[in-house]
Simulated scan of single mutants.
Amino acid sequence: MKIAFYGSSLLSSYWNGAATYYRGMLGELAKLGWKVVFYEPDAFDRQKNRDIDPPDWAEVVVYDATPEACRKVMARAAEADVVVKASGVGVFDDELLGVFDLARPGALRIFWDVDAPATLAEMRLNPEMPLKKALPNLDFVFTYGGGPPVVAAYEAMGAPVCRPIYNALDPTTHHPVPAEPRFTADLALLANRLPDRESRIERFFLEPAAGLPDRRFLLGGSGWHDKHMAPNVTAIGHVGTRDHNAFNCSPLAVLNVARDSMAEIGFSPATRVFEAAGAGACLITDFWEGIEMFLEPDSEVLVARDGKDVAEHLAALTPERAATIGEAARLRILAGHTYERRALEVDALLRSEGAWRSERKSA
């Protein structure tokens, strides 16, 4: 069984927050017998900033960001049993929806949304959006967050079936490691600078830092080089996935700040939540609906509703309590939220739908 997956990038996490999700999910599906072909454009300098080599569990096809190259890889959709177009490829997103028309008869057609709140908002503003027109002809919409609000919204717009396939942990790649001095801090945050998250990062990270001049704050991620910050904040730029474990294990605590749309709709834990928990880090997160589905507030995660809460959590946090919270989070995520579990869910959906189609065809 072959999956043709058209996404942003499997090889690079540079300006590509979905990389960990793709790797964890597709790597586990490959273990279940799926042959994965991942098509990614050479765009946004991602190929110059690869943080993994092409994996042995997937064929990765990198194509030029030109219309001709795009058409060539789209034609290969006809080779697959399952055709997936992900959101947020960044180039030719509307054109790539054409892979659903090029899929062979009987193939499953799936739109996999890695930013459902943003996609839904765009479709509400633009009723003529090509994706909205394509929804009724798909077999599934998968999302990596959103819960009941996203499911209801997608199905109201014509998707036959919408299923959240949440972010998770790959314990072989994200796990405890020794602390490294270069990542030492009282509170660390890993987040690219994005318009719909910047004000929340100011409130939950930069303002508490300014109010705690004796504490050290560390900011990883791209785009912050010209942002005014207090002297006790160190911005270190892009942090590749190979350094995420050390980044999470070295500070007293790490912070998660959701984007505006993710926080508003809830049920949308970022990959950073699972990476930090897998490393045994003490996580402080901004509040969003549904967090208890993944981690228990106060015992497995510290929840903040504003920057004042962040500062209070940090002031009360001892190394011993931080270690206790981090270990509890790690055990909770290992028990119920790994990519192995998520892949089994996807595999069951795909095989069930495929078997139903085979039975209907032979009847």
Rank of each mutant, 00 (worst) to 15 (best):
W288L: 11
A348H: 08
A328C: 09
L252C: 13
A253H: 07
F274G: 13
E312A: 12
G336L: 03
G278N: 01
F247T: 04
G307F: 04
R330G: 12
C282K: 03
L331C: 04
I325F: 05
G290I: 08
T318E: 05
A315H: 10
H313K: 10
P297Q: 04
M293Q: 15
E275T: 02
A281S: 12
V273E: 06
V239M: 07
A329G: 03
N248S: 07
I265Y: 12
F294Q: 00
E292W: 11
H337W: 15
G326V: 02
S358M: 10
R357C: 07
S352G: 05
P251T: 03
L317I: 04
L252T: 11
I333F: 13
A270F: 14
N256V: 14
R259S: 15
A277V: 08
S299E: 10
D347C: 09
P251A: 04
P269E: 03
L314V: 11
S261D: 15
G354C: 08
E312L: 05
L334M: 15
L295V: 03
D347I: 09
F247G: 02
E292K: 14
A281L: 03
H244F: 09
A304Q: 05
R342K: 10
R342L: 02
S268C: 14
I265W: 13
L314I: 05
I265R: 11
P269C: 02
H313E: 06
A355V: 13
V239K: 01
R341M: 09
E275Q: 03
P319Y: 07
E292L: 06
E345F: 13
S261E: 14
E289C: 10
N256A: 12
W356N: 08
I265E: 13
A246V: 07
L314D: 09
F247V: 01
S299P: 11
E312C: 06
G336D: 08
L295I: 00
E264M: 05
A246I: 04
D260H: 13
V239S: 06
G326K: 02
T318L: 02
L317A: 01
R242Q: 15
E345L: 14
P269I: 03
A348I: 02
A281G: 09
A281H: 12
T338E: 10
D286K: 10
R321Q: 14
H244W: 06
L350Q: 03
Y339L: 06
V310S: 11
V254W: 09
A253Q: 05
N248W: 02
E320V: 14
A276W: 11
V346G: 04
A246G: 03
A316Y: 04
L317G: 07
I291N: 04
A343D: 03
R351C: 00
H244D: 00
R242A: 15
P297C: 05
V310W: 05
E327V: 13
T318A: 05
Y339F: 15
T338S: 10
A263N: 10
T285Y: 06
W356F: 06
R305V: 02
A276Q: 12
F294N: 02
M293D: 15
E292Q: 15
N245K: 02
